[in-house]
Lab assay of single mutants.
Amino acid sequence: TTLHFDLDGKKLQYTGVSEEIARLVEELKRRGVDLKEIVRILEELLK
């Protein structure tokens, strides 16, 4: 799965993300978590 974000005018793309992580990101968005925080979490998970 590939995730795309537009953060402060920067286009971020994460490829090869598992379905689980993609679902987690969608859930965080639904809960109103700040996009910067979501990206920070995502980068930690993908290390």
Rank of each mutant, 00 (worst) to 15 (best):
L24W: 12
D6A: 03
V17M: 03
K10E: 12
D8V: 02
H4E: 15
H4G: 05
Q13A: 13
E43C: 02
L45T: 11
D6Y: 13
T15A: 09
L12R: 04
E27L: 15
H4W: 12
D34K: 08
E27W: 13
Q13L: 14
G16R: 06
L46S: 03
L7M: 09
T2N: 09
R23C: 08
V17W: 01
V25R: 00
I21F: 07
E20C: 06
V39E: 00
L45E: 11
L3P: 01
K11S: 12
Y14R: 00
K36M: 09
G16E: 06
L42R: 00
L35W: 03
L42V: 07
R30Q: 15
L28Q: 05
L24Q: 15
L42I: 06
G32D: 09
R30Y: 12
V39I: 13
L7S: 03
T2C: 05
G32C: 07
E44F: 15
E37Q: 12
G9L: 02
V17I: 09
K47D: 07
K36F: 14
K29S: 11
L7E: 04
V25D: 00
L7D: 04
D34R: 07
L45R: 08
D6E: 13
R23P: 01
L46Q: 04
L24I: 14
V39S: 02
E37Y: 09
K36G: 08
E19V: 12
I21V: 13
T1A: 08
K36T: 13
E37I: 09
E27D: 14
V39A: 03
V39R: 03
G9E: 04
L28S: 03
F5T: 01
F5L: 05
D8N: 05
K11L: 05
G16K: 05
L24C: 07
E19C: 02
V33M: 14
R30V: 14
K29V: 15
G32I: 04
R30T: 09
G16D: 08
D34Q: 11
K10M: 14
L42Y: 01
L42W: 00
V17S: 01
D6T: 08
I41H: 07
L3A: 00
R31Y: 05
S18F: 02
L28D: 01
G32T: 04
K11W: 10
E37R: 09
V39G: 01
R40T: 11
T2R: 03
L3Q: 01
V25I: 10
E44A: 13
R23W: 08
